[in-house]
Write a protein that binds this DNA or RNA. Structure first.
Length: 252
DNA sequence: AAATAGGCCAACCGCCGCGTA
DNA sequence: TTACGCGGCGGTTGGCCTATT
């Protein structure tokens, strides 16, 4: 270690530290475009960046990734954060998987800023946070109302799509114990795991809610990624189970 | 208007688990 | 079997900005 270094200067090993420049960002984006994510320690050599692999990965994951969602955490996302934190504690990366476009770092920062108990004047701090949240919620409430109609239509279509996918998988060679147990129109609770039951409930729109969220919210915040969903069926055995668990756990 | 406090967020650090040679 | 490198994760730090006093 080079000890306590100032920002934007070289370490003993020659690595740059501190804030990223636009040119460094450009190089990193170009590197990922050509080589894909991963092999971060090759970035310095292949992209001409004087950054170590960890720094590059962090910059990409937390800032440059194209699928990142910018802007404030919505009240809807906040409820999910609170719910999942109550369930899993400080497992930020796990929580982040349930919030597409949000990074673990972002969620961690948000939670610490808004909900971490402070020893000094807790009532004041809590009151301020509450008021701030209230203002924010009022703002988002307007947006939500506008989106609501559109989402209702989308949910209907989405639900139909999901059932079609299940039906399609049933016809494929990927017939699994889960897909057999779930049988969208012929469900056997006795043979299904808790996760399977939960997933089935979601498909049919009667899941028990971990908080006062509508089915609609669950569909759009929970079943976020059809690629992952399909992956949980097509991957082999244990991976399949693990993926299913990750997919469904937040809602069971 | 200046000082201070607090919020926010990017980035670093150290540890750990996994894959591989 | 083991040592090593890499990537991922959670905790922490520090700087900038805004609100409050």
């Amino acid at each position: 270690m080079a000890g306590h270094m100032g920002w934007g200067i070289l370490e003993e090993e020659g690595w740059r530290k501190g804030p990223w420049t636009t040119e460094e960002d450009r190089l990193l984006i170009e590197y990922v475009r050509v080589h894909g994510e991963g092999r971060w320690n090759s970035v310095a050599r292949l992209a001409g960046l004087k950054r170590n692999g960890k720094s590059c990965r962090l910059r990409w994951v937390n800032y440059l990734r194209p699928d990142l969602k910018r802007g404030q955490i919505t009240p809807q996302e906040e409820r999910i954060i609170l719910e999942l934190h109550a369930r899993w504690g400080n497992r930020w990366s796990t929580i982040a998987r349930s919030l597409p476009g949000r990074t673990d770092n972002e969620i961690k920062n948000y939670w610490r800023t808004h909900f971490k108990k402070k020893p000094k004047n807790p009532p004041d701090a809590a009151e301020k946070a509450k008021n701030r949240l209230l203002r924010r919620q009022q703002f988002h409430q307007l947006q939500q109302q506008q989106l609501q109609k559109q989402q209702q239509q989308q949910q209907l279509q989405f639900s139909l799509d999901m059932k079609s996918i299940i039906a399609l998988l049933e016809d494929n060679e990927h017939k699994t114990p889960f897909s057999q147990a779930i049988q969208v129109n012929n469900f056997y609770p006795n043979t299904a795991t808790e996760e399977q039951s939960c997933f089935y409930s979601m498909l049919n729109g009667n899941a028990s809610m971990p908080y006062e969220a509508s089915n609609e919210e669950i569909f759009w915040d929970g079943l976020w990624n059809l690629d992952d969903f399909h992956g949980s069926f097509s991957a082999a055995g244990a991976t399949k189970q693990a993926n299913l668990h990750n997919l469904v756990a937040p809602f069971c």
